[in-house]
């Protein structure tokens, strides 16, 4: 991966994902290593983020590198009308690698074509967020010991959720994954994503009720349902509580079940679940640091 940009999860092979995950487990054992000393990483966040930006900055700091950047577009020359190309070409002069989040889809791809240093896409609108996908794969492997022969449920907004689309597509590269897709009818997984599952002859089942699926699962991946996605607000009111997980619903679930969520959560996981050992979303957020350390070290040629 040396000097390559990481823009889309579709750009990489299964072997390349696995290499990153193996490297991430090295960083999990030894998170402080001075391998980026003398390197400058720019974090350009044209829209806000908590976990992604801070975990990237934490990853760079723990590896001994320095961080420059901005946390919203209003404090950059974008607010004066500078083009994305000019901003990227300028910042590339000041840094060895650029991490960027931008609300416009395809912006990271474009940046990677005009930049003289590698770009890591930390989210381009509703399109791609490959480092989230890799940290989710890492967390699944960490908790289950494997990335094949698993029953995985994705719950919530499966129509617009970029994280769900990337994860489903990435997981279709592994053997015997069964997908359980739980969503309101209005927010079902798009057929273009289902095509990836069918192409690999994997099984998927669609549900509108969360309760019935829980006993079968190894991984329960929750996502947020946003009110503004519904054309009919009455429909939202009707379904919103069907996709809220509480502790009682976990009775009868498998011992190895882990609950993941990309965060931020609003109310889709009741706080009474947090103390259940099956809740794993905060550990998942910690894994973001190790996986991003692995990505930074690979691209900068330090591992």
């Amino acid at each position: 991966m040396k000097n390559r940009s990481l823009v889309s999860i579709n750009d990489f092979s299964k072997e390349e994902y696995l290499k990153i995950l193996d490297l991430a487990s090295e960083f999990e054992k030894q998170p402080v290593q001075n391998i980026l000393e003398g390197n400058v990483v720019a974090t350009l966040f044209f829209e806000p983020s908590t976990r992604t930006r801070l975990s990237f900055e934490s990853a760079v700091n723990r590896l001994g590198g320095r961080v420059i950047g901005f946390t919203d577009a209003s404090s950059s020359s974008t607010s004066k009308g500078e083009s994305l190309k000019d901003t990227i070409k300028t910042v590339a002069n000041y840094s060895d690698l650029i991490v960027m989040r931008h609300p416009i889809e395809g912006s990271a791809k474009w940046a990677s074509e005009v930049s003289s240093v590698p770009i890591i896409n930390a989210g381009d609108g509703a399109n791609q967020h490959p480092t989230q996908c890799l940290l989710d794969l890492y967390t699944i492997r960490q908790t289950q010991g494997r990335l094949d022969n698993l029953h995985i449920a994705f719950v919530g907004d499966l129509k617009y959720g970029r994280t769900v689309h990337s994860n489903v597509i990435a997981l279709t590269q592994f053997d015997n994954i069964t997908f359980h897709l739980v969503s309101p009818d209005e927010l079902k997984l798009p057929s273009a994503v289902k095509m990836h599952i069918k192409k690999k002859n994997l099984n998927y089942y669609q549900y509108t009720d969360l309760k019935e699926v829980i006993p079968h699962l190894d991984v329960l991946y929750m996502t947020r349902i946003q009110r503004e996605r519904f054309s009919d607000p009455i429909e939202y009111e009707r379904v919103k509580n069907s996709y809220v997980l509480n502790n009682d619903m976990l009775d009868g679930s498998k011992d190895n079940l882990k609950i993941l969520h990309p965060l931020p959560r609003v109310n889709e996981i009741n706080e009474d679940v947090d103390s259940n050992p099956k809740a794993y979303y905060f550990e998942q957020a910690l894994n973001g640091v190790f996986v991003r350390q692995a990505i930074l070290a690979s691209i900068l040629g330090k591992k």
Binding site: S83, K85, P103, I104, W110
Partner: peptide
């Protein structure tokens, strides 16, 4: 076709 695509916002 996507109004949020970078090609509809920047000179790409």
């Amino acid at each position: 076709f996507n109004p949020k695509c970078v090609t509809n916002h920047e000179n790409v």
